[in-house]
Write a protein that binds this DNA or RNA. Structure first.
Lengths: 222, 222
DNA sequence: TTATTTTGTTAGTTTAATCTAACTTGTTAG
DNA sequence: CTAACAAGTTAGATTAAACTAACAAAATAA
């Protein structure tokens, strides 16, 4: 059996390694606000259990088994978020805290019932993909907004990572999932973007914001 | 903060003391399948925290604070059962296991949303009363079926305690909450009851069964 | 009422998950 | 290229929640 604590480490490692393939002890330590020696010994334990590739002083990677476990926890998290949002009427910035707890419930029936009632969704309320029952992430080809070029038209697909503060900021800016933005210009000095969307012809987004927004590119000038 | 483990002890003590006022270490030990010394030290800890009246070799009682805490956990459990049953389509013998886990979630909003969506129910799918937000059990004046007299007409209100096996037995007998039964006779030797209900003119219920069925008496001969 | 059994308690051990302090390895800036 | 800093590791302590073994008190039966 896998403990809630272990599940949290797996989840952290999954999201830290998702884009670049590996992560280090220090990153997990910061992410979970747990001291490095604690993380270190947990990584050894998870390696013993076959979930993590661990070698002294080398970056950490999940095994295939570990990836699957982690994806299944993330599946439970995102299904829960979607359920809270769609079926219970919570706002999209309220669902995360609750889902953090619900994701640890052991009951395949509970989550497959949610899945069924939701009509088998493929994304959560933040646009993040929901892994399938086998822990496989659905295909996606999103890019971060800060990697786009001036003139690109893009649709906001996901927010990653999505802090409560950020979600409230986006709500205040009237920026929601599915919103289509046109990139007017990019300020070379601080990489801030001037964009237009909906009824807002000029909005400036800092790189702190654009580096968390995942978008699908609709048209580019090139 | 109160741990999940502590919550489980409080809940056990609450239900053991509900009818007779106190309980002993051995009963909790059996109920939770945890050895007596462990229970003993947990009772001291809960006494330190102000939830339990503890004196060596004396029966255990909950403080008012402890009763409130326990009732609020039971509230979360029963709201969850009702939600699973009414809003998610689970059968009444499937909801307990899931609710055992969901009851430990810390999120007042989550449970008050359930409450709202359910229309502020006062009983769970087994007919057990749901305490209010202040931990107060709603009034109830049910009696166990084995305390009734021949000739009584009674309505099945609750099943306590309600094991999965028992619920399946009742389902097979076509006995559900709200069913009205007429007590035809009582066998003095083993205290089994012969009853009639719905389309079943003669059914015999053992005292093992009748001692767990809570009913409201509609009419008696006396 | 004494002997036996049941129940309760104390003491000390174990495991999981955390920590701090101290040391080692790896990286980076002069 | 070496000194300093950052990151990783080891060792040992702490806390919560469980256990077993042994002893003490209370209840029960002979």
């Amino acid at each position: 059996m896998i403990s809630q604590t272990e599940e949290n480490y797996l989840k952290a490692l999954y999201s830290l390694t998702y884009l670049k393939g590996d992560a280090n002890v220090n990153e997990i330590s910061k992410r979970l606000d747990i001291k490095m020696p604690t993380v270190n010994s947990m990584m050894k334990k998870l390696a013993d259990k076959g979930f993590v590739h661990y070698e002294s002083y080398k970056p950490l990677r999940l095994t295939e088994e570990g990836k699957k476990e982690a994806a299944l926890i993330i599946r439970k998290h995102r299904l829960t978020e979607m359920y809270l949002f769609q079926k219970m009427g919570f706002a999209w910035d309220e669902v995360h805290q609750i889902a953090e707890q619900v994701e640890h419930i052991h009951s395949p029936e509970f989550f497959s019932k949610m899945d069924e009632l939701l009509g088998y969704p493929t994304v959560d309320p933040h646009g993040s993909p929901i892994p399938d029952q086998n822990g496989v992430m659905p295909l996606e080809n999103y890019v971060f907004l800060n990697t786009c070029k001036a003139g690109d038209m893009v649709t906001l697909m996901a927010v990653q990572p999505s802090s409560k503060e950020l979600l409230q900021y986006l709500t205040a800016k009237n920026l929601e999932l599915g919103t289509t933005l046109t990139i007017k210009s990019i300020e070379p000095f601080d990489e801030s973007l001037t964009v237009a969307y909906k009824d807002r012809p000029i909005e400036v987004l800092s790189s702190k914001v654009t580096s968390t927004l995942l978008v699908r590119v609709i048209t580019g000038l090139a």
